[in-house]
């Protein structure tokens, strides 16, 4: 637990039709940091965030945002919290510019609409009705609505879903600019590069529970172990993975993410690498590519949550 959390969730339970979507989930987010909640679809990310936003009532457990209860203290909390929903929630028949101006009128000292419009490139579609916006344009407008009240905390539910790379960069830059001013950002995503680029802390959620938490660097380095990834010109011989494991001995993990690649985790040093390549020569495997390094966040995530679709 952090000393001064902006969000603190303890033993949160939320059930839909008997099954627990969120199952005794506990997490905390550091004030002034960017916290990414990462997880596969259906992991319980959105439900957890919506409990923090006061949109859903927990079945059990406690939720505190800025030390307040999102439901009981809603009136005090709403001005201080910005929300970007996954389904946008923008009125379909209104023009984009009208929607942003309207949301701005709910606040005492809003972010100047013209500045937000420029930062997020909204000017080109300010006179277009929400219904006619592309997915990425709608996301940018929803983000602007979440920020216009100059909140202390913003919850962004999959902020860059459906965005082109340029828009995504603009959003990332804006999130960094917010953090530089002390705004706390909690975002959900299943984009690994987004979490790795933006987040100070990553919380991995699956089956309604937190299964890992740490900085991107902490999550991608498993102690002093390194990873060697090899790609073969042709499919690996049957049983190559097991034989390499036996060849290397204790302290090594070997797996095969796909039929032409091998992944070796352990204390990779020149001798170990020579042993791996000697094994390949003996097995008549031509290595076309060899990467050394730490695991990517994506590797880490897939190791934790499994590689098969659900």
């Amino acid at each position: 637990m952090t000393a001064d959390p902006v969000v603190e969730v303890r033993d949160l339970v939320k059930r839909y039709g008997g099954s627990a979507v969120v199952d005794r989930l506990t997490l905390s987010a550091v004030r002034g940091a960017v916290t990414a909640v990462l997880g596969p679809n259906g992991a319980g990310k959105t439900t957890t965030i919506e409990c923090c936003e006061g949109l859903r009532a927990p079945d059990a457990g406690t939720v505190r945002v800025l030390g307040l209860d999102p439901l009981a203290d809603a009136v005090a909390l709403r001005p201080r919290v910005g929300v970007m929903l996954q389904d946008s929630g923008l009125p379909a028949q209104k023009r984009a510019g009208e929607v942003l101006a309207h949301v701005a009128r709910m606040y005492r000292d809003p972010w100047p609409v013209a500045d937000l419009t420029e930062r997020l490139g909204l000017a080109s579609f300010a006179r277009t009705t929400v219904r006619r916006l592309s997915g990425g344009q709608r996301q940018r407008l929803a983000l602007a609505c979440a920020l216009v009240g100059r909140p202390e905390v913003v919850f962004l539910d999959e902020p860059s879903a459906g965005m082109d790379p340029q828009s995504r960069l603009a959003v990332w830059e804006l999130v960094r600019a917010l953090r530089a001013q002390g705004t706390s950002v909690i975002l959900t995503t299943h984009l690994m590069d987004e979490a790795a680029e933006l987040a100070d802390d990553v919380i991995v959620v699956d089956h309604g529970r937190v299964i890992a938490q740490g900085t991107p660097a902490e999550l991608t380095t498993t102690g002093s172990d390194q990873v060697a990834s090899l790609t073969s010109a042709t499919a690996l011989p049957d049983g190559a993975t097991a034989r390499l494991r036996a060849h290397l001995g204790e302290g090594w993990t070997v797996d095969s993410p796909d039929p032409t690649s091998l992944r070796v985790q352990g204390p990779v040093d020149p001798a170990a690498l020579a042993a791996v390549l000697a094994f390949c020569a003996a097995e008549d495997v031509l290595v076309t590519r060899l990467d050394l390094g730490t695991r990517s966040l994506e590797d880490f995530f897939l190791d934790l949550t499994g590689r098969s679709m659900r």
Partner: peptide, 19 residues
């Protein structure tokens, strides 16, 4: 892209209820 301009610092507050 130009150098990132500083974002306004947080300054939350609701507009008056009648507004």
């Amino acid at each position: 892209m130009s150098a990132p301009a500083a974002a306004p610092a947080p300054h939350p507050g609701a507009a008056p209820v009648l507004d």
